[in-house]
C-alpha cells in the first residue's frame, strides 16, 4: 500500500517568493498529520497545491496513489477538503448546500440524499438541515463544512485551520469529530493549524513549517524531547549590558538567547540554574524584572524551531477580507 501523501521537492512560487519551497513529506495511511506554522508559512498554499486548487511550480506529489499533475480530476474525486473559510451558500439550507456539493462530485441524488442526511446526523445538524445557513452559528457552519467535505466518501481529508475563530466548547467538539473520523472511519487526516495545543492533542505526527520549509517533523513527544531541557526566561531592563557569555559559563546551562529585554536559557535542570542565574545577575548589580521556568511544551519546541512566535500575517487585501469574513461568521 502506498502512502496517503508523498511529495518530493514540491514548490510553489509567486514571482520571486517561494510560498512552498522544495517540500518533502510522507503521510502514511490512517495517520492524523498536523501542519504547524505561523500565518503565512505556506500551510494553506500546500493544501491548495495538494488538492489541485493551485498548480505547483515544481516538484512531485502523489496523493492517494495518484500524481496530482497527471490526474487532477481523479485526485479531486477521491479527497475531501474542508477549507479555512466558510464556503457554504448563506441563502441555501444546510441540506441544499451538501446536496449541491454532491452534485458537483457527480454523486447521483438517489445516493446523496440519504448520505447527506447521515452526515448531518453525524455532525449533529439534522435538526437544522432545512434552515438557511445564514441563521447558523459559527460552530454550526464549521460542522456543516466538515459534513460537506465528507460527502464524496473520501479516505483522505484535508482540513485547513479547522478551529479558526471558534470558542472553546465548539473547538473541543470539532476535535472530537476529527478524532472520530480517524478512529472509527480509519481516515487519513491532514490538518493545518497555528494552535499548538490543537496540534499537540490531536496529531500523530507534526511537521513544523516556516517560510515554505519544513523545519522539523516528529511526534509531539519527540518534538518536545528534542528541545533537550527546561527553559528559563529571565526578564531584565532593556538598557542592561548583555551578560549572555557569563550565563553560558554556568555548569548546567546548555544555551542562551538574548532578546531585547529577556534571556531565554536552556538548562538541564531548570530549578538549579534559575537560582544560579539570579545570583549571577544580582552579583553584577542587575535587576531581575521577572523569571519563569517552563518544562518543555510544544510551544517551546515551536519557538525553538521557528525562532519566533505566531507572526503577523502580511496578507493581501483579498486574504485579509476573507479572513475577516471567516472570523465574522465563526463568531456568530
Amino acid at each position: 500500500m502506498t502512502a496517503a501523501i508523498r511529495t518530493s521537492g514540491l514548490t510553489k512560487r509567486y514571482g520571486d517568493v517561494r510560498a512552498v519551497d522544495a517540500l518533502d513529506l510522507t503521510v502514511e495511511r490512517g495517520e492524523l498529520y498536523g501542519f504547524l506554522g505561523p500565518n503565512g508559512a505556506g500551510k494553506t498554499t500546500t493544501i491548495s497545491v495538494l488538492t489541485t486548487l493551485l498548480t505547483a511550480s515544481g516538484g512531485k506529489a502523489v496523493v492517494d496513489g495518484l500524481d496530482i499533475h497527471k490526474h487532477p480530476n481523479e485526485v479531486r474525486r477521491r479527497v475531501g477538503v474542508v477549507p479555512q473559510e466558510y464556503t457554504a451558500d448563506e441563502d441555501l439550507t444546510g441540506l441544499q448546500n451538501i446536496l449541491l456539493c454532491a452534485d458537483l462530485y457527480g454523486i447521483p441524488r438517489s445516493d446523496s440524499k440519504p448520505h447527506a442526511m447521515e452526515l448531518l446526523r453525524l455532525v449533529e445538524l439534522e435538526d437544522a438541515a432545512d434552515r438557511k445557513v445564514s441563521t447558523y452559528s459559527g460552530g454550526m457552519r464549521r460542522r456543516l463544512e466538515l459534513a460537506s467535505g465528507l460527502i464524496n466518501y473520501p479516505k483522505l481529508l484535508f482540513l485547513d485551520e479547522p478551529t479558526l475563530g471558534l470558542d472553546v466548547q465548539t473547538r473541543t467538539a470539532v476535535w472530537n469529530y476529527i478524532r472520530m473520523l480517524k478512529e472509527e472511519y480509519r481516515m487519513t487526516l491532514f490538518l493545518t493549524t497555528h494552535y499548538l495545543e490543537e496540534a499537540d492533542s490531536l496529531c500523530d505526527r507534526i511537521a513544523i513549517i516556516d517560510h515554505g520549509h519544513i523545519v522539523r517533523i516528529g511526534t509531539p513527544t519527540e518534538l518536545k524531547a528534542s528541545i533537550g531541557g527546561d527553559v528559563i526566561v529571565v526578564g531584565v531592563a532593556e538598557s542592561d549590558p548583555d551578560i549572555s557569555d557569563d550565563i553560558r559559563k554556568l555548569s548546567l546551562v546548555k544555551d542562551v538567547k538574548k532578546s531585547d529585554h529577556e534571556y531565554r536559557i536552556k538548562s538541564e535542570v531548570g530549578e538549579e540554574s534559575s537560582i544560579q542565574i539570579i545570583d549571577l545577575l544580582r552579583s553584577k548589580g542587575l535587576q531581575v524584572t521577572k523569571i519563569s521556568l517552563t518544562k518543555p511544551t510544544l510551544d517551546e519546541a515551536y519557538l525553538e524551531f521557528t525562532g519566533h512566535g505566531i507572526r503577523e500575517e502580511e496578507a493581501s487585501k483579498m486574504d485579509a477580507f476573507k479572513h475577516r469574513v471567516t472570523l465574522m461568521r465563526a463568531r456568530r
Partner: peptide, 14 residues
C-alpha cells in the same frame, strides 16, 4: 470568489 464558494467548487471534479 470572495466568499469562498468558488474554491469549494474548484476542489470538486466539476
Amino acid at each position: 470568489r470572495r466568499f469562498g464558494f468558488m474554491n469549494k467548487a474548484l476542489s470538486t471534479p466539476v
